[in-house]
Design a protein around this nucleic acid. Structure first.
Lengths: 116, 116
DNA sequence: CCCATGTACAACCATCGAGTTGTACGTTAC
DNA sequence: GTAACGTACAACTCGATGGTTGTACATGGG
């Protein structure tokens, strides 16, 4: 039944990771082009270690992956997880639609039963 | 250009609100059927005040709205905001597609310029 | 009117999260 | 080999968060 395939823990990690503008910005940057951690760090007015931590949070959520290339660590986007998160929100919208449908059915039934 | 229409602050609040399983559960419940705050509070093994706080976090994010009915406060879903959040993630996927398209174009150009 | 109900809010506590600095380690270039 | 680069990680500070309890207030029913 769960189309998005996310556990509560998964969703916790994903939404928590997305709940920070720096991390969202990192996601957009690596979606646009893979970059090393230091490439990313240069862009923000905070320490390298801070950016490193942000990447780690994103990585734990599966939103990015790191791959060694020489002495650099290349960060690229975890598109599948982004898609899963989107699917979760989509399932919320579907929940709503089903509810509306149920109410419609109820009203229709009332109409027929009242039917005088 | 920003189709989802969310500021950084909006997105911070929305994703932070969604980053808690109790709050996500509340969202699904009120999507299924509007409920009073005490209706909701009965469902969880935590104090009324705690649930009240969770609802407040969701409300600040626009994910739910509260409407007085008698002495009860009825919680119902903020469908529009859920949709906006979904759109933001969708825009991430689009970013990816554009990048892929750009790379494809680059490769194609290389093919023609090399052209033997 | 009075009491139970439903809510609001403040104060408090423990934990977590974001940031810092400092140190250590592997890799590349010279 | 050694110096510079890129990264990893620990220790620390401090504010935010999730939970609690207690009190106050408005509303509806008998």
């Amino acid at each position: 039944m769960v189309v998005h395939g996310l556990s509560d823990d998964d969703a916790d990690r994903i939404f928590h990771a997305l709940a920070d503008r720096t991390r969202r910005d990192i996601v957009t940057r690596v979606l646009d082009a893979e970059q090393s951690v230091s490439d990313l760090a240069e862009r923000y007015s905070m320490s390298f270690a801070a950016v490193q931590k942000h990447v780690a949070v994103l990585e734990r959520a599966g939103l990015v992956r790191k791959v060694r290339r020489g002495r650099e660590q290349i960060v690229h986007a975890g598109l599948d997880v982004i898609h899963q998160a989107k699917s979760l929100l989509e399932s919320y919208e579907h929940l709503w639609r089903h509810r509306v449908a149920r109410i419609d059915a109820l009203l229709a039934e009332n109409d027929t039963t009242r039917g005088d």
